[in-house]
């Protein structure tokens, strides 16, 4: 990987304290290339969401999370910094796993973050809302109902609204946590298409537990297992020539629908796209 590096982690370790102490991320050092889409894959509970949140300090809203190590955004550390936390989170955007509209109109969902960070005239705001809704291929569906509650859109539309909302604060990096896992197959495809368009312009880091999705969308893949980084490579090499034994098993378990091959039970169920509602 000889691309420009947008984000780099150095010995990142996250522990959840409490009755049962869990080390969710155990010393991960890796790099994320600029204007590429990197997929973080691995079975459930292996620390993917934790890793993502550590990249913009979002886990700090959990009172019991402790972190050591550093994340570099360009050359600056995001933990050892004088910048206010909200500014860091603006620069590294986050789209949550559950499609959630803010309790605002469709228009204000997109404008919300932008209004927090900048002064816009109402004309500028109109333009901004339109351009980001277009960017996520949602404009044509909602242009006549911008004042309706965001929550009244379909789940798939809400997820694209979330993308638009995150992009509207002009982040340098976009974190997406299993953004299609709560969607029906058609909506999931639309979100994937949107991500496909976006990765030309943005550094995207996407958690997924669908191998196929990683193959379709990702330029690079990072494989986490029980909080440790097992393997990181470009997508092609990762799937065609996995270096580690664990990766080989994981990749096989997902690609071949050959149940004699003793696939990891959890992974097989995870692989099915789940349609909700």
């Amino acid at each position: 990987m000889n691309d420009d590096i947008a984000l780099r982690t150095d010995d990142l370790e996250v522990t959840y304290t409490g009755n049962r102490e869990v080390t969710a991320l155990d010393g991960v050092s890796t790099e994320f290339a600029e204007n590429k889409l990197t997929a973080i894959i691995g079975p459930s509970g292996c620390g993917k969401s934790t890793m993502l949140k550590a990249l913009n300090r979002l886990h700090e809203i959990q009172p019991n999370a402790e972190i050591t190590g550093e994340v570099y955004l360009g050359d600056e550390g995001i933990y050892d910094t004088d910048d206010p936390l909200p500014e860091i989170r603006r620069r590294v955007g986050y789209v949550p796993q559950t499609p959630t509209a803010l309790p605002l109109s469709i228009y204000n969902n997109v404008a919300y973050g932008a209004k927090l960070h900048g002064d816009y005239s109402s004309d500028e705001l109109d333009d901004l809302v339109e351009s980001y809704l277009r960017k996520v291929n949602l404009w044509d569906e909602v242009k006549d109902r911008l004042d309706d509650p965001g929550a009244e859109l379909s789940t798939g539309q809400i997820q694209r609204l979330c993308l638009a909302r995150s992009l509207a604060v002009e982040p340098e990096v976009l974190l997406c946590d299993e953004v299609t896992s709560a969607l029906d197959p058609i909506s999931a495809e639309q979100v994937e298409e949107t991500l496909e368009d976006l990765k030309e312009e943005y550094t995207i880091i996407m958690v997924t537990h669908s191998m196929d999705q990683a193959k379709r969308l990702a330029d690079d893949v990072i494989f986490l297992y029980l909080g440790e980084l097992v393997e990181a490579n470009d997508t092609r090499s990762f799937f065609e020539d996995p270096q580690h034994e664990r990766t080989q098993e994981f990749v096989k378990g997902h690609t071949a629908i050959d149940y004699d091959d003793e696939p990891d039970e959890e992974n097989v169920t995870d692989e099915q796209p789940v349609a909700t509602r």
Partner: peptide
């Protein structure tokens, strides 16, 4: 209120 609202808002850089 769903935690995801909070998460989304913080994620956008809200105080």
């Amino acid at each position: 209120a769903p935690d995801t609202v909070k998460e989304a808002s913080y994620g956008l850089g809200a105080t």
